[in-house]
């Protein structure tokens, strides 16, 4: 706490970096996962294969992903964001595919029969019906990314992880603890906030 009182600017900078890393990674992951998920949902065999592949990818530890990218992309902010985007991709992708494939079949059939184009069906019917599931995938991805962003420090990506590694290196327990607690709180807050939003969304979309 003393460290925090002495270095508020350093702390806020680390929080800002951490959020920037997480949000950018998450945004890129979602931007890739949604269209990919919609495309895959209509191809049953590819959809199943992608769900299995994504499941396998999720078992790879975050640190391993970061380390594996190091020789390919080097160090710094960009490779960290790419690694986080890769982590965010599977949960959102899987839930998009499942959300569309388990959506009310009669509604999807009606959308086609009434003359909606593929894009209109995706935007007006498929995504809204899959929204509760997509959102829960997004919550999982967000929590994972916020936690994993702590590891970005190992490839020079910055964020709250820096405080932990610096604390360890300088034997500065205060600095280390502030970093560690902030990471934990951020992950918990993300989970809580998105969980609440998710329940709200589910009642709105399903109605009942």
């Amino acid at each position: 706490m003393e460290w925090l009182r002495a270095n508020p600017g350093l702390f806020l900078g680390a929080v800002g970096d951490h959020l920037l890393l997480s949000l950018t990674g998450l945004a890129i992951g979602i931007a890739l996962a949604l269209p990919l998920g919609i495309a895959l949902a209509h191809r049953p065999r590819l959809a199943e294969a992608s769900i299995m592949l994504a499941g396998a990818l999720r078992t790879i530890p975050s640190l391993a992903v970061l380390a594996a990218l190091l020789p390919l992309l080097g160090v710094g902010f960009t490779p960290s964001v790419i690694a986080l985007a890769l982590l965010a991709l599977p949960p959102v992708l899987v839930n998009t595919v499942i959300g569309i494939r388990t959506a009310d079949r009669a509604a999807l059939e009606a959308a086609r029969g009434l003359g909606m184009t593929g894009l209109q069906r995706a935007l007006r019917v498929e995504l809204p019906l899959a929204a509760p599931l997509i959102f829960s995938g997004l919550r999982v991805a967000a929590v994972q990314v916020v936690s994993a962003a702590a590891l970005a420090t190992f490839i020079g990506g910055g964020g709250l992880g820096d405080l932990v590694t610096q604390g360890l290196a300088l034997l500065d327990t205060g600095r280390m603890l502030v970093g560690a607690i902030a990471i934990a709180l951020l992950a918990l807050a993300t989970e809580a906030a998105l969980g609440m939003l998710e329940r709200h969304l589910a009642t709105r979309v399903r109605g009942a």
Partner: peptide, 20 residues
């Protein structure tokens, strides 16, 4: 096909109203 379908009314057994 989509233009054709907009000119044809379509009613199915499970109705398929958009729940949202």
């Amino acid at each position: 096909a989509t233009r054709l379908r907009r000119r044809i009314g379509y009613v199915i057994q499970d109705v398929g109203l958009f729940p949202h």
